[in-house]
Design a protein around this nucleic acid. Structure first.
Lengths: 339, 339
DNA sequence: GCCTGGCACTCGGCTACTGCGAGTGCCAAG
DNA sequence: CTTGGCACTCGCAGTAGCCGAGTGCCAGGC
């Protein structure tokens, strides 16, 4: 009972603070939300909430603001996921369905998410696992430099530049192409190593060093956890929350330029099958201690194709943001996944 | 004579202001640079320079700061290009030479440029013209969705997702692949249209709608001025110049997220064969009126492969920045161009 | 036992005021 | 044309003081 009202007070504080960005006091709270009790009572509850670490006051004799812990409780127990309106869903769909290729899908998604949530959006390029080789193309860029393009049957395309020690002519390239494709096309990822290691023996001696290099590149591409690409948009939105970040904006931008950091943030939400929220220090990134990350995976199946999410101030409309992220992820998943 | 000293005064003002970010007064100027004249004389010169619009004072009774026009004159007539030290050149080279593929080259370049200049760096992906088709690969993503990968002999790789109205199986895909490659491989860009339009007649009737779609995609890829990709890094550096930008940081970030804007800024410097500087309103982008852009093309030959440059505050060390941009462009050009 | 109204107290932020000093423009002399 | 002198301007920093929102505590009531 009493417990219930306290939580209600916490919710009211979070909601008001998210809206106004000002510490919220007992009087305003009792008025704006019809809690049915007087400001004095609210004060007592606030006092208790502060004791438990859910809220804090920036200065003595100011209103209260939620702490990390307070936001966490709010997200876990006090907020549902605000459903998007029909119009919003339609807008998402129509914005995405004009996409012509993979790059386009990812770019549109990330822009859409940034616009929608008015925050920084991040989308991971889809990664398809357990693929087999479809085709290898070799292009002569200059006598000593070759471009190798590797295509898998899931549609992943990898490019590698190969330096050759000896000059190579078009005929040789053509020969290389044939050799590589004969030996490798259709090979599954797991079987690739043997096929690859057998490669040099199939070729003319003078080409072997070159083929060995290429074989190495193929292996790297298929076996190594590839360096994953991500797209980002809406960094301008960070300046909107200038009050929340103050001078730390710099370090936030720096952190967001680190692929590794982003991958960790977004990637960890990939396979949870739900929208996850990391608040403040929960991000495990010091520069992002004043931000919150809302992320999820997209794509059907037991494993997601990739992750996407937004980074914004802790003072964020969580129910709405979570709904928006979930909705965009759903549409993108449908667009890219099996029908 | 007199004209000479005035210019010297302007140079001194620019140099001091770039260093200190404070309006520079006549006394300090006469002391720090040995102009051989008294502050009063300097004041007269400043007065004249202000009359001509090269400098201005932020408030009455403050020192002078350069105007757009002042910076322009400085760049055009008063500054050379500060050569980079041997160590710096070596650093650039060693940072870039580890690159394994095109993406890697571009990413490394843009990061390098951002770090070096401590500004926002932009690098355009190389675009190779007058290419011919090397190979077309078709991959089945789902029964109604195909991925088409187009490879040209210059190493450009384009991906397109094709929606099919009727379900397609692996066999059909294989057939499509053969048909497309037979008809198009080796075709030059200029000849593509006829070959493409003849395509549908070569295929089974039930596949024609699908082939038509793909043919369209091929045309688009080869004929349309492709949507060019660019990489950006160092946006965090914008916050460094917080004094220069004040609250316009927001709109600058927004402008920088617009591919079109960036392409115009960087692209226009591509084929000039030299480092170009756009100062303030010369950028033709309102949001960037308090910034300057230093850009150049990279890659040998009459036409550049692409453009690269940096965006920073007008209060910038132009000689040094120009040198850095030029140096990075040179190395990247060598790395990507014909040997 | 919990809620309520009253009351004294705290303290951050805003405004007004003032003095300082860097820098200017002008002028008359060299 | 240059120079030193001089009066003037004006932004900035530091100080003082008021205001009001908000708190904590307490005694009385349901």
């Amino acid at each position: 009972m009493l417990e219930d009202r306290r939580l209600e007070v916490l919710r009211a504080i979070v909601e008001d603070f998210v809206l106004s960005n000002e510490p919220v006091g007992s009087k305003a709270l009792a008025e704006r939300h019809n809690l049915g009790v007087s400001p004095a009572t609210v004060r007592n509850d606030m006092s208790a909430l502060e004791e438990e670490g859910y809220i804090t006051q920036p200065h003595t004799s100011a209103g209260r603001i939620p702490t990390d812990k307070g936001y966490r409780l709010f997200v876990d127990r006090l907020s549902g996921v605000k459903p998007l309106s029909r119009a919003e869903r339609r807008a998402i769909q129509s914005f995405l369905e004009g996409a012509v290729d993979l790059d386009d899908v990812v770019n549109r998604s990330v822009r859409l998410l940034a616009q929608l949530t008015r925050q920084v959006a991040v989308v991971q390029y889809p990664t398809m696992t357990s693929s087999s080789l479809r085709h290898i193309e070799v292009v002569l860029l200059s006598p000593r430099r070759l471009l190798m393009v590797i295509i898998t049957d899931t549609g992943r395309v990898e490019q590698r530049i190969i330096e050759s020690l000896t000059p190579v002519d078009e005929e040789t390239v053509s020969e290389l192409r044939t050799t590589l494709n004969c030996a490798l096309t259709g090979q599954r990822l797991a079987d690739a190593p043997e096929a690859v290691s057998a490669l040099p023996d199939l070729t003319r001696p003078e080409l072997r060093p070159c083929v060995a290099t290429m074989a190495g590149a193929v292996l790297e591409t298929l076996v190594e956890p590839q360096e994953e690409r991500i797209a980002m948009a809406g960094t301008a939105n960070l300046t909107r929350a200038t009050v929340d970040f103050a001078d730390s904006l710099r370090s936030i931008l720096e952190a967001l330029e680190e692929q590794v950091v982003l991958m960790k943030l977004i990637g960890s939400a990939r396979d949870t099958g739900t929208v996850t929220v990391r608040i403040g220090r929960e991000t495990d990134v010091d520069a992002l201690r004043s931000t919150a990350v809302v992320a999820t995976g997209y794509g059907r199946g037991p494993f997601a194709l990739g992750g996407m999410g937004v980074v914004g101030p802790m003072r964020m409309d969580y129910p709405w943001t979570m709904a928006a992220v979930r909705a965009v992820a759903k549409y993108v998943g449908e667009l890219l996944g099996a029908d």
